Structure formats: structure tokens, C-alpha cells
Simulated scan of single mutants.
Amino acid sequence: MLEKETEIAKARAGDSKRGGWFASCGLAGALLASACCVVPLVLISLGVTGAWIGSLTAFEPYKPIFISVAVIFLIAGFWRVYFHKPEPCSEGTLCARPQSSLITKAALWVGTVLVLLALTINYWAPLFY
């Protein structure tokens, strides 16, 4: 009985790690996708200046690739977090803590917002200048 609980806890911890991994990769892809357009606009709006901000436009040709990769990882992360039904986990393990799930969900939603901003920047960016 104890062996089965240990196996279930390991499987659940692996599921939690995979969901977090998908969320991390989706967020990284979203940051790269928004690096050419959204990030410079936000930095300039906050008063941050410098010649290095103009070099961020070098990411523009790679924007479709970054968006595609980010969307794939975000879809996998949302599926893992919201639709995948893992085995119940044991008390005292990482998967039993709700904070890990909240961080993963927050990363997924922030990544989704960044991808949407990067996709629609041509429509709303002219309002700022």
C-alpha cells in the first residue's frame, strides 16, 4: 500500500513539473515574441531610454516563430493544468501545495496576454504615438 502511494506521489509530482515546464517555456516564448514590439513600447512609456532599445527590433523577423512556439507550449500548459486529471497526491508533497498551481496558472495567463499583445500590436500601438 505504501509503495503504491509513493508511486502516485511521484507521478503527480512529475505532472506538476511538466505543467510548470510548459508554462515556463510558453512564458519565455511570449517574452521573446513581444521583445521586438511590446517591450520597447512599455519601456519607453515608463521613461526608460537608451540606444539599446532600438536593437530589440532585430527580433522582428523571428516574431512568427516565437509566437508559434509560445502558442504550442501555452496550449500544452493549459491542457496539463486545466484538463488533465492526474492521480490524487499524498500530503506533504509539492503537488499538495496550492501555491505551485497558482504560480503555474499565473505564468500561463501572463504568457497568453503577452502573445495576444504581440499579435495585435499593429492595431493598438499607433494609439500611443
Results as ranks from 00 to 15, higher is better:
Cys36Tyr: 06
Ala23Lys: 12
Leu43Glu: 01
Leu114Gln: 13
Ala70Glu: 04
Ile8Gln: 14
Glu87Ala: 14
Asp15Ile: 13
Phe73Thr: 03
Ser55Trp: 15
Phe66Ile: 09
Pro98Leu: 07
Ala107Ser: 07
Glu5Asp: 07
Cys36Met: 04
Trp21Lys: 08
Pro64Lys: 00
Leu56Ile: 11
Ser68Gly: 15
Leu32His: 06
Ala51His: 01
Leu56Thr: 05
Leu108Val: 11
Tyr82Cys: 04
Ala96Arg: 11
Phe59Cys: 00
Gly50Phe: 09
Thr112Phe: 12
Gly26Asp: 07
Lys105Tyr: 08
Ser24Trp: 04
Trp79Pro: 01
Phe66Glu: 00
Trp21Tyr: 06
Arg80Val: 01
Thr112Cys: 12
Leu114Val: 05
Gly54His: 08
Thr49Arg: 04
Ser24Lys: 02
Gly26Tyr: 01
Thr112Gly: 10
Arg97Asn: 11
Ile53Ala: 06
Pro86Val: 13
Gly54Ala: 05
Ser16Phe: 12
Ala76Tyr: 09
Leu102Glu: 02
Arg97Trp: 08
Ala30Asn: 04
Ile65Gly: 12
Pro40Val: 07
Ala35Met: 03
Ile8Lys: 10
Val110Glu: 04
Ala106Tyr: 10
Val42Thr: 05
Phe78His: 10
Ser100Asn: 12
Lys85His: 07
Pro86Tyr: 15
Ser100Arg: 15
Glu7Gln: 15
Pro61Ile: 02
Ala23Cys: 06
Ser100Asp: 15
Lys10Asp: 14
Pro88Asn: 01
His84Ala: 08
Ser100His: 15
Leu56Met: 14
